[in-house]
Amino acid sequence: MPGGDGAVRVAEGVLVEPRAVARVAASATRGVGGVVSLEPTLVGLVAELGRRVADAATGREAADPVDGVRVEVCPGGHSVAVRVALSVGGRCAREVAADVAGATRDALERQLGVRADRVEVSVVDVALIPPEAAR
């Protein structure tokens, strides 16, 4: 869920909305091996459902869900801080978290030209399989 006000300025006259940043960050996160799902807060889920209803009412194509991702535009408006909440499984949570941060930074820079000052990953759940079954 985008959390900051305003947009991030990537070039003279070019602004990127926090929601676009969140969509790219969410997509990059989902592409990392070991990520089971993004995990919204209750407030985030309600806000996301509200956006979907608004999209349906106005006939707009439903946007990709960004629940579990918060974006804040840093002071000065030239960079962002991203917070991602997720569940992991099948891989070590520490490695997955590091890969998510790297993938998010790369995707924001490559797809939007947005610089991330900070990517914070919060692992809220770990999907479990017995070690004997994993061998």
Partner: peptide
């Protein structure tokens, strides 16, 4: 805390307890 630095990561103690 799982990772410190410019891109910090942390894991819920409840999730660790479940593990």
């Amino acid at each position: 805390p799982l990772v410190v630095g410019p891109d910090p990561a942390h894991v819920s103690t409840a999730a660790v307890a479940a593990v």
